[in-house]
Amino acid sequence: MAVTDAGPATEVAKRPSRLFKNLASKIAAVPMVLVALVIFVGCTIWTIYHSFTRSRLLPAPEKWVGLDNYERLWGENRWLISIENLAIYGFCSLTLSLTIGFVLAALLDRKIRFENTIRTIILYPFALSFVVTGLAWQWILNPQLGLQNVVRSWGWESFAFDPLNNAEIVIFGILIAGIWQGSGFVMVLLLAGMRGIDEDIWKASRVEGIPAWKTYIFIVIPMMRPVFVTAIVIIASGIIKVYDLVVAQTSGGPGIASEVPAKYVIEKMFFSQNLGLGFAASTMMLLSVLVVLIPWAYLEFGGKKNG
């Protein structure tokens, strides 16, 4: 709208008003403004609003039903399982990828040979899609022909490792694939942070005779706090988005044992035409992001103000 109106207006006006100064730059910023306002703000508010209405299939007359959708959502077993899975996956994925990433970064930081080769090997899964990751691990964890079968053929007849068909532990089968895919990225992040630490710290700790592991735990990790915070925010926002990995690896099965919220939302919206529930569930997802994001933003921007 603004674009088409502004064109002739500048030709007519004798003194260009402030609004039309640097017109080209303002036109160029239109996509950014549209994305920010229409998509990120507008669509989010739209979804939150509609989560309080009974919308089965839009466009349809919508009726305000208050917290009705949320009550049904939290009464549904499928959603509760999704939340539980996300909590387990999220906690394990966060701690494991941070631990593995840090240990690998520390190993790579010890002036070793072939550093580039090793880093390339550890990071390559990150270039692959979740679908490819999920399918590869689905094959490796195949009970009849995969890893379990190989270990049994080595003579350990009673060996049992079949996470993808066991509702109790299926989420850990997905976790293995997720860690394989993402831990290299955490390593690269932490390694960059580690390299940013002054070498004098290492000299000083050597002079004092402090063992390396102590230096890492008591000096390096506290100094890397900003990098850890960034890594945690990135990993956490990735965890909430987990969708294609589950779809490819287990399709949510066995039964509904490996459902996750992101998948729940898509299914409610596009396959079972239950939009109200979908909107309520996606609003809950947004809420959980805010729980992570707000403290981070506070630390980040509060910190800048103070110095």
Partner: peptide, 15 residues
């Protein structure tokens, strides 16, 4: 807004 938008789950905006 754009930067914070990057953290909004896609599921919120998809419909």
């Amino acid at each position: 807004i754009l930067i914070f938008g990057a953290f909004i789950p896609y599921q919120v905006m998809i419909y």
